[in-house]
């Protein structure tokens, strides 16, 4: 299975988001695997994959080129660089025949937009009502939520850096909203 298909994301980052307190960038194509694993098999599957499947909803584990987030009681998403993803998918498929789990390739469902800078949390909060103070949403947190009316996956990579993932078809809308907030509100 090859993941090196490069498809046109159809999204451009507006100039207003290219410099200043908040900078948005496209995260590039990633491999995304949706894993459902029964709790009894969680540790064994994690060991075989080579990274932790965190038990706590909202927690992540990461190693070079791979981030794994727990999204629900038995649900994880793995987001990997393309050079890691193909092998990982093959491995996960094999495990799925052995353990009580399923794996689905959802690589092309989302695109990632990184939002970085001292105004990053403010920018996210304009459209997302989550409590993004560090104590409530520490570095490494990942959750589904909403940005305006769009379902998103929000990951805090660092204190002032987030990745917002949304469905590909919604991305121009999300980026457009961010640009509107950025140019409309001086505080953002």
């Amino acid at each position: 299975m090859s993941f090196d298909i490069k498809i046109d994301q159809g999204v451009e980052i507006p100039e207003v988001l290219q410099s200043g307190r908040v900078v948005a960038e496209l995260a590039g194509e990633k491999v995304r695997l949706s894993l459902r694993v029964k709790s009894a098999d969680r540790t064994a599957v994690a060991k075989a994959l080579g990274f932790t499947l965190p038990a706590k909803i909202g927690a992540t584990s990461s190693k070079v080129g791979i981030t794994c987030a727990c999204l629900g009681p038995d649900e994880w998403i793995v987001i990997a660089d393309q050079d890691k993803g193909g092998k990982l998918y093959g491995k996960a498929l094999k495990l799925a025949s052995k353990y009580d789990m399923s794996v689905t390739d959802v690589s092309f469902r989302n695109i990632g937009i990184t939002v970085t800078g001292e105004g990053a949390a403010d920018m996210i909060n304009v459209g997302c009502p989550l409590d993004l103070r560090l104590a409530a949403f520490p570095v490494g947190s990942c959750t589904r939520s909403v940005y305006e009316a769009v379902p998103i996956l929000l990951y805090r990579r660092a204190e002032d850096s987030f990745t917002v993932e949304c469905w590909r078809s919604f991305a121009p809308y999300v980026v457009g909203l961010m640009a509107a907030h950025r140019s409309g509100a001086a505080s953002t």
């Binding site: 909803i57 009681p73 959750t143």
Partner: peptide, 18 residues
Amino acid sequence: MMLIHCPYCDEKRPEIEF
């Protein structure tokens, strides 16, 4: 907007997520 406690997330989260 209300905050609703999700017993699985064990967190109070914004009403519009529900």
